[in-house]
């Protein structure tokens, strides 16, 4: 007794040229999608399939014939007859420079391994901007005034380095790693959670992700859904569990397996991925490509698993204040 379900109306195909090759993709596709359909790798940082492109990192730029400037592949829609070049000198220079400028100002050491590979492929040399300036004091970057900055001194290169923010038991925020891709703001905001605990504040190089008046998360609107962490590409936002394991030197992805199951709480039925290391859940994510969650969870789904490993042995009362009990 299945019934017809409205499907997306069929889309027309658009023909364009990418690096001299003819490509046909559905109308409304982006250049990035066209490149992917041809197997052309395009570096991306601020792009994520589940979020509306904000096209701010500019590492995906391509050359579109007839266009004065380069175009972001992630958000520019294809047009019939468009001629796109993804590997011209102009494109390579811009991509190299974007990677170089970022790497000279942000700690990219926990970004995906792709980033390191792109840096090598494009020949990025972040060192040539000079030695990095000392890290800012805690809170100093949060207080910078729009439109005013200190003059550069001693040939040092400004960076966003600053102390890690740890103000609760579930998240840490290490903005020395923040490339301002806006993904966390989007995920906290209109694209998923709609809590708006964080936004971009300040401007220019002093722009930063912030709560209102830079209050700690515990005084903000944050509901600890962890969706910002789920989308962060550089490890600037991290579960405290992972942060602590990393600090102890015990984080080891090669020893981890991922099991997909269903969240045990409310009746929505969110798909969760349990990351298990040494028979312990160390992180919970959700698949981006499942339409119930699109990668997003709530606080219970994200952190509520801890009962499985803090469960007291049967026969004793549960003791929430005591040390974690491990299985086995």
């Amino acid at each position: 007794m299945s019934v017809p379900v409205p499907l997306d109306p069929p889309r027309r195909l658009v023909e364009l040229e990418v690096d001299g090759r003819p490509v046909r993709v559905p109308e409304g596709s982006t250049i990035l999608e066209a490149c992917r359909s041809e197997g052309i790798e395009t570096p991306t940082l601020c792009f994520l399939d589940t979020l509306t492109p904000v096209n701010v990192c500019r590492v995906c730029v391509v050359e579109v014939e007839g266009s004065r400037v380069l175009a972001p592949a992630c958000s520019r829609r294809v047009e019939p007859g468009m001629k796109v070049r993804t590997d011209s000198d102009r494109v390579r220079t811009s991509r190299r420079m974007v990677l170089e400028l970022l790497a000279s100002s942000v700690d990219l050491s926990l970004a995906s391994p792709d980033v390191g590979r792109w840096m090598r492929d494009y020949g990025a040399e972040p060192e040539r901007y000079g030695p990095p300036a000392p890290a800012a004091e805690a809170g100093e970057r949060d207080a910078r005034r729009a439109g005013h900055h200190e003059e550069p001194v001693d040939g040092l290169a400004a960076t966003v380095a600053q102390p890690v923010k740890v103000d609760n038991e579930l998240y840490v925020r290490d903005y020395s790693r923040c490339i301002l891709c806006y993904k966390c703001v989007e995920a906290c905001g209109v694209e998923a959670q709609n809590t708006f605990a964080i936004a971009v504040a300040g401007r220019g190089f002093d722009a930063r992700i912030s709560t209102e008046f830079a209050v700690p998360l515990t005084e903000s609107a944050c509901v600890y859904c962890g969706n910002c962490i789920g989308v962060c590409p550089t490890g600037a936002l991290m579960f405290k569990s992972e942060h602590d394991l990393r600090r102890q030197g015990n984080w080891d992805e090669s020893r981890q397996r991922v099991v997909e199951t269903i969240c045990p709480y409310c009746g929505v039925g969110c798909h969760v991925e349990l990351h298990v290391q040494d028979d312990e859940i160390v992180k919970v994510t959700s698949p981006l490509d499942h339409d119930i969650t699109s990668g997003h969870l709530c606080i219970k789904g994200r952190f509520g698993y801890q009962f499985t490993q803090r469960r007291a042995p049967v026969g004793a009362s549960p003791d929430p204040g005591g040390p974690p009990e491990h299985a086995g």
Partner: peptide, 15 residues
């Protein structure tokens, strides 16, 4: 001072 800070080329390039 006046870069909005949104895109990398301008945010870091002006610095």
């Amino acid at each position: 001072d006046e870069s909005c800070g949104q895109c990398v080329p301008c945010r870091v390039g002006t610095v």
